[in-house]
Design a protein around this nucleic acid. Structure first.
Lengths: 335, 335
DNA sequence: TTGAAAGCGCTAACAC
DNA sequence: GTGTTAGCGCTTTCAA
């Protein structure tokens, strides 16, 4: 890595002349600018980003904290974040909380030492369950902005980007009701999470708004520690009538489908199933699973746009709460 | 963020005294050390990482370039990388090449301006296909180490971590042969990639080594741009006898299973199927897919260990070529 | 035992 | 039009 100083020596001019010339300053003569630029290119000069960061107190880097990268939803959000960040000239430092409060708090603290200009994150499950918020407040007090997506904290005032979870669940349930399904079950493996509660509420609201259809909704809560398939098998063993299933996390849908098929249900004739997920997560089920499709990459992109806008705006920016649309993808497990 | 300077003012001592005290230098008196540390804690002092980086010409940051984060294999490697990096006190800057040469070269160049101490990466498909290597050489010439995992370049001398791809494919094929399968097909959707070629070779070698069994192996190459399901359907349409299938990429397995079931094959009685993937990628197939299981997180962990060792070692380190074991996970789609 | 000063690479106000 | 200088936050040599 060649530096300005070395370039200056080679050119027999001062460091600041080189600096100004490379930045095309009008203070410097045409000829010099050309000469400097040429030499810089020849030696493949690149401004040292660390020095720039120190000088400007700006790193052009965003800290991203993801609860679980093996969850396709988060992977796709990260995809969106990275894409938009690159476009805006930002790097991302990625930390994975693995759903743990400790790791999340640690990452925030560690990166708040000047490594990043702001954070984009989704809250770890443990943090949500235990309602921890002090670590967020610490960061915000240091005037480092945080943007939360998907799993957000009511108790914290900051930019937020979420799915329209309530509406999505509402629409899916309404669809089953209008199909004529009477005994619908709601598989909730994420009841501890804010989004889980929201989606659950959406389902019940649909039932309420359509009571003339006389559909029933039974919520099956599965603790996050428990095996999905076993829990679902257990419920089926109860022999309650079921003709509709809504899964509000992004893996249960496939499990329900397989179990139902094994038990002899014709899908979708005997039973409709709707999963919750980004497209293409369960591409190989047969029949193909109908889903509530989150536009996960759009969540990532919007998050970056909102955060970068805040970072680069001269004037104070109002807190943003953005809702990302979803779509109901009816494939082969619904009528 | 409080700085050393501000602490020094509050304590009425010099900046260097504060610095030394915080680092527990023996030059400084016990009493002063205690006083300084206390005040530092009170004001929640954290050394500015950017300043440290500039001073030490070390960022304690690794640049990670992933071809496709939506591929579960890479997501899990990233998981391993992040986990081990955090353990070693490194941050990771994540870039996604999305299989494009341009993006890959760009990320390397961008981060080589002092942002990272070294790189961990897997080569983008486009880069491999076009055999581009100059961008790697540029970086290595700047004395910034690169470690390649999974998809590596023969033409470049650097640390490498790979699956034992040849052996994995060999063992899987041998298993099918010993099951008595005679007409085995090899679904190769990644023939352009080095790992694809290696796995393919492993399969053929097994056939050769076991010619007394009289098993046949037919390779079905699917261009990466083509739809897997359509291509597989097309092959099945040819009505060639098939009683064994090996899929050497990590999604085709599920597709083959569904198509075979739809066409009336009993699995595994009529046909054995083995997929290639990390565990739990296709957890909801029925019957459960047998797979060649990569230990993807181990790849990530090993990569970080090797790179960090190189970065922190005083003496020159020999180039490392590490092979990660796999396991053959026989579930329900094999006899 | 403590402090002053230089320097990592860069920019920008100010001199010349 | 070009150069000098200070300073971003930190460590470290050298001087007191």
């Amino acid at each position: 890595m060649i530096t300005l100083k070395e370039l200056a020596e080679k050119l027999n001019v001062s460091i600041s002349t080189v600096s100004k010339a490379l930045n095309g300053s009008s203070e410097i003569g045409e000829a010099t600018i050309a000469r400097v630029k040429e030499t810089a290119k020849m030696y493949n000069y690149k401004p040292n980003r660390v020095a720039l960061s120190l000088k400007n107190s700006k790193t052009k880097t965003i800290g991203v904290i993801i609860p679980n990268i093996l969850n396709h939803f988060f992977a796709k959000v990260l995809y969106g974040i990275e894409k938009e960040s690159a476009k805006q000239g930002y790097n991302i430092i990625t930390c994975l909380s693995n759903e743990l409060y400790e790791k999340e708090a640690n990452s925030l603290e560690l990166l708040a030492n000047g490594s990043v200009d702001g954070f984009i994150m989704s809250i770890a499950e443990e943090t949500e369950v235990n309602k921890k918020t002090d670590h967020f407040k610490d960061i915000l007090n240091q005037k480092i902005p945080i943007l939360m997506f998907d799993r957000v904290s009511q108790a914290i005032t900051c930019d937020k980007v979420v799915n329209n979870d309530f509406q999505a669940a509402y629409d899916a349930t309404m669809h089953l009701i209008k199909e004529g399904r009477k005994n619908i079950i709601l598989i909730n493996k994420i009841e501890e999470l804010s989004v889980g509660k929201l989606r659950s509420k959406g389902c019940f609201k649909a039932i309420e708004d359509a009571k003339q259809y006389n559909s029933n909704l039974t919520e099956v809560k599965i603790p996050s520690t428990e095996n999905v398939e076993v829990a679902i098998e257990n419920y089926f063993d109860k022999k309650q009538p079921i003709d509709g299933v809504i899964c509000i996390d992004n893996i249960s849908g496939g499990a329900v489908l397989n179990i139902a098929k094994e038990r002899g249900y014709s899908i979708p004739q005997d039973m409709s199933i709707i999963g919750f997920s980004d497209d293409n997560v369960l591409p190989f089920t047969s029949p193909k699973l109908s889903t509530i499709a989150q536009h996960s990459d759009a969540i990532g992109e919007a998050s970056v746009q909102i955060l970068v806008n805040r970072l680069e705006s001269k004037e104070p920016v109002e807190t943003v709460f953005k809702t990302i649309d979803f779509s109901l993808n009816l494939r082969e497990t619904t009528l």
